[in-house]
Design a protein around this nucleic acid. Structure first.
Lengths: 230, 230
DNA sequence: GTACGCTACTGTGTATACAGACGCTACAGG
DNA sequence: CCTGTAGCGTCTGTATACACAGTAGCGTAC
């Protein structure tokens, strides 16, 4: 597969692979395998990995290689606090900047999300959910805020996916997003911010209960403990 | 100079070079020159550059190379808003986590800062000021928050340096930092947060007036405007 | 049977080498 | 005199190749 992919595109693919749990937290990545899978040599692949390392998504350990960042429960909580500090303000600043056409596209996207929730296609729902949020956040036109928020969301995403798979189907309804779009369309920044805060708070409440059940790829300590129990 | 530097260390050196305005915003970096200067080949250097790209400090333009990120005035403002959203909370969470010895070291550091302000050694003051803030923020023990805040601070730093060089000497007094340490020692999280907010607000007020005077390496638009004025 | 050390192998890290893109300069045409 | 273009040089981007570190597996000694 000589796809002639560039480091930036490779980085995108790798981010998605981490988000979608094709590369699991704690997993050590084999550069030869990834490179040949993408049809490139290890040089551009390694550059992509370094980019992800700069974003905190992976860690490069000298002599060992790239390891997907693993989060402790308290770190997940920290990330949710960061989202709380960043995302509502960013969404509020979207108010007044979005055109009628953009809003229509977002509404269509939200409806697709609702349909997927009903169908129960979890992976698709997660991907579309992620894309929806990202598009919305992009509209603020604040590149630095966007970069930081996306870093936080990308870090959480592999865990959020597990959360989504355990949550009841009703939690993935379309209502939240439609309400958010309503507030934005109405030009109500305060309400937008409030709804955003509410959504994050909901995530936090759900994650708090599930945090210990999230499986990681190797988690040596947990494996040891399991062995010791026998 | 065959220093055998690793990409991580190279990234540190490059970050410092950007902070200290040895590499100016807008400047295109020559990989051969940098590599030979550090005594390594271009491969580890490029990996370091990709790391900085992941942090937003530089941009990799295909076929052109690495360009130091240049900020528009509104972006500086955005970054200050981000600091406002992140840093006070982080500093407040330091309260209660810092040992007597760490506090003593920080006090010594603050006194050094005051001395440097009196001496008028601007470069040293800026570097020590940066190091002081970083150490303080590290004590919170929140790696993700720290990473994000440092990204923001690193982006602003080359501009903050110009600001510092234009500000009156009195602005670089030691009082601010001592007061902050006092609040932390007293275990007063609220006051700590308030002082942090105040410091950022001060920066913002100063930068607002100076934003247009900050020289960049090329700033094509500004150059065009200057030409047009003649 | 267990614990330690050695060896072989796998995979990372980097230097060298080469292909191709970008930009600059010099020249020809309008 | 200005504009468009062709050619060249410099620098980026990537594949190949090699040196070395980490790891696992085996054998040996206790």
């Amino acid at each position: 597969m000589a796809s002639n992919l560039r480091p930036d595109q490779l980085a995108n693919l790798l981010r998605r692979a981490v988000r979608e749990r094709m590369l699991l937290p704690g997993q050590t990545l084999n550069q030869d395998e990834l490179a040949s899978r993408f049809g490139v040599s290890r040089i551009p692949l390694r550059e992509a990995l370094r980019t992800l390392a700069g974003e905190g998504l992976i860690v490069m350990r000298p002599g060992i290689g790239a390891v997907v960042t693993e989060l402790r429960p308290d770190e997940l909580d920290e990330l949710l606090e960061l989202r709380m500090a960043l995302e509502p303000a960013l969404l509020a600043s979207v108010v007044g900047k979005v055109s009628a056409q953009q809003l229509a596209e977002l509404r269509a996207h939200a409806i697709r999300l609702g349909d997927l929730a009903v169908e129960g296609d979890l992976d698709s729902w997660c991907s579309e959910h992620y894309a929806f949020h990202r598009r919305l956040l992009e509209l603020a036109g604040r590149r630095h805020s966007l970069r930081l928020v996306m870093q936080v969301i990308n870090l959480m995403e592999p865990y959020a996916r597990v959360d989504a798979s355990l949550a009841p189907d009703g939690a993935r309804s379309r209502c939240d997003h439609q309400a958010l779009l309503d507030a934005i369309e109405a030009g109500d920044a305060g309400r937008t911010r409030q709804l955003a805060e509410q959504m994050i708070e909901t995530s936090r409440a759900r994650l708090a209960g599930l945090i210990n059940d999230i499986p990681s790829s190797e988690d040596p300590l947990a494996a040891m403990l399991v062995d010791l129990k026998r």
